[in-house]
Write a protein that binds this DNA or RNA. Sequence first.
DNA 1: AGGTTCGAGTTTTTT
DNA 2: ACTCGAACCT
Length: 752
Amino acid sequence: MTDRHSDLDALLADLTEPQREAVLHVEGPLLVLAGPGSGKTRVITLRIAHLVLGVGIAPWNVLAITFTNKAAGEMRQRVGQMLSPRQARAMPITTFHSLCARLIREFGDRLGLDPRFSIYDTADQQRAMKQALESLDMSTSNFPPAKVLATISNAKNELLDPETYASVASDFYHRKVAQAYRKYESILRQNNALDFDDLLLMTVQLLRQHADVLEQLQERHQYILIDEYQDTNHAQFVIANTLAGKRQNICATGDPDQSIYRWRGADIRNILDFETHYPDAKVVRLEQNYRSTKNILAAADGLIRHNVRRKHKALWTENEPGDPVTIVVCPTEREEARWVVDQFCQLHDMERIPWSSMAVFYRVNSLSRAIEDELRHRGIPYQIARGTAFYERKEIKDAVAYLRAISNPADEVNLLRIINTPARGISSATIKALQAHAAAHHTTLPQLLDNPQQVTTLNPRAISAVSRFGAQLEAWRKVTERVDVTLRSFLEQVLRESGLESFYAADDNDPDEDRAMNLGELVSSAQQFEDELEFADMSQDESTLGRRLQAFLERISLVSDVDSVDADQGSVTLMTLHAAKGLEFPVVAITGVEEGLLPHDRAVAEAEEVEEERRLCFVGVTRAMQRLYLTCTQRRTVFGQTLPTTPSRFLRELPRETVVTQELDDFVGDVFAGESRFGVAAEQRRRAAEDARMYPPGTRVRHPQFGIGRVLNVSPAGAHTRARIEFGSVGIKTLVLQYARLEVLDRPDLPF
DNA sequence: AGGTTCGAGTTTTTT
DNA sequence: ACTCGAACCT
């Protein structure tokens, strides 16, 4: 212990004055405004170490909340090095969603929730929403499930329940959404399921409605630390604030310039108004950067200065100037990929920079394709940060659906997925008959599986198929009550007895998809999970298979994209700019730095959203330690269509003295003038410009089917130029101008 | 009952 | 270009 103390003292001696202030602060609210690369993680871990070793607070009374599970794991690792691994394991270091899932599991009875609840992912949510819309006779074309779900998600983040939402819904669309919301909620409850937002919402209800639970939790979590505070939403703010209670021992760290999740409900005001929420707050600014070269930091600073709605922060470093930031203009995405990979190869071969020190970022996942192809072609090891992709595979979703249906008997959505996969003679007609019977007799489909004989509309063959499956499910559920069966062997049993294993073993429809192998990977991940569980909690030997299964399913539901990234794998890392938050690499390339991609098309209409895109670019730029490459193309193939592109406005915003530009091939424009000109594109460009002139925003038009509408905007895309038009009758439609047969009624005053 | 073909929508970012 | 769902066929 004394050793640890002197270790701590030595570490504290190394800190700068502001870092030291943040580390040594103990009681009351603390806000750490940390610029990129300012040693924030070090400050947080040292602060935790100081709380435990210096002040004597029990590790289990500290609650640390990170943005991803991966970040939580890394923080636990680092805290474990300073305290002991044992103390680190006793400390809750987790994400908001995992914390909430566990609290609901623990206190669910207070909310009337069965602890076996399923956590619905986006696909499950869509299925549930389609059911809701269908039963309300709402067409999915006027009310796209994804859009309705997004609206509801926003409502939930603002803690609006269906009733409250309905009372504030003013126009037709929102009133219909309110109906869908109510129905969707009742379907989720009937399935004993929660979506991601419910995890937060239900936790708020738990804390607000049950004073004794709140008191117990306030005693448990006396010191709360929240990282990436700029990306918390209102529900998360309420949870943290309520848990902190009167003590207000809340330490928030973050950077408003790195707020990139507004679209997901993140509320930047949480961090901007911290001092209003907590008038006694101590505020510490960390502005010195230890990560990047002077050039990279100056480029980042020059870029972010273009945001108007922002408090300026001085970013500075004592690091070397380094190479200038390199902008590369390539003819197509093929050459772009080739250039980046060539460059990486050179750095690898000439300067012995390991592959694991290099990363490629992009705005949208689809851009990974070209880079991947090139890396694979050259035989360079790479990994893509898409932790969720594995669980989106058909065979994995099937296997997990079995586990969910077994674990949570009320889960009809997952049951329906597997009821006839692989085929076992339960046809869609049979399912319809079961559903109809359930609806008419005040019961549910899952319950009918036990005695389908009562469904008189079914023929004997169907009845026997259904009851056989019902019996099979029951048998599996019996196994989950045992303590002496491992997750791994249970999963193997289910895969075998369900027929899923042989179904996918025989499936060789697409030769490059080894579905059987992926199922094997799921089996080993189950084993790995159980091993970790045993390691983390010695008292687990008593726990039933069912409990361990719940924990495993929870983990699967809450994986994030970066969770799969392993820095020590010796491979180049590919990821979206969003996933790059919180990471750093010596060498970074950002591809597709073009108008329409970064900033994204869907963001350019609103100044606020363009600022978020700029912050996203800022996040990407500030991940780079030594070298930074920004690439764009002159034409890019999207949807199998090759169209001309324009360099991003963000490139022009970089201070010229920090960058050099390389132009490949036939590029004759000027990135800084914001134009790229070349043969093929000129005609399409001219035409698109003309279209935009024909239909300026505000133009009133008549459509043969939809009637009279108003043009919102036109996205130029050559022959496929589309206009978004708001019709009184059917809402907003996106139409291809060439085919839409629009009649212009009147145009607003033209500026030219 | 199960497989096949055709058309539509797709790509913003994710816990 | 690719994937997914719905109508359609055997």
